[in-house]
């Protein structure tokens, strides 16, 4: 059966570390970085890459449009 596999790219400099994407993710992919960006914010990172299903919930709730989402099928 085909499996859906997703991945995201976070614009780390644009991210303000609000954590809303972390909360929105249904498969607990995201976490906040330990490092901070130039603005001093911790930014969202994929901590659990394998769990991403490319549902885009993170991108949709991101107030700053920081998240780009990709998705593919693996046979």
């Amino acid at each position: 059966m085909a499996k859906i596999k997703g991945a995201i790219v976070v614009n780390q400099e644009r991210c303000k570390g609000c954590r809303l994407c972390v909360v929105a993710c249904p498969t607990n992919v995201l976490a906040m970085s330990k490092q901070v960006n130039a603005k001093g914010y911790n930014f969202a990172v994929m901590e659990n890459e394998d769990a991403c299903i490319g549902c885009a919930s993170c991108g949709i709730v991101c107030p700053d449009g920081c998240i780009t989402v990709y998705k593919t099928k693996i046979d």
Partner: peptide, 11 residues
């Protein structure tokens, strides 16, 4: 996965 043809969401 991160390829233009797989894009599903961007600002």
């Amino acid at each position: 996965i991160i390829k233009p043809e797989n894009l599903v969401y961007k600002k």
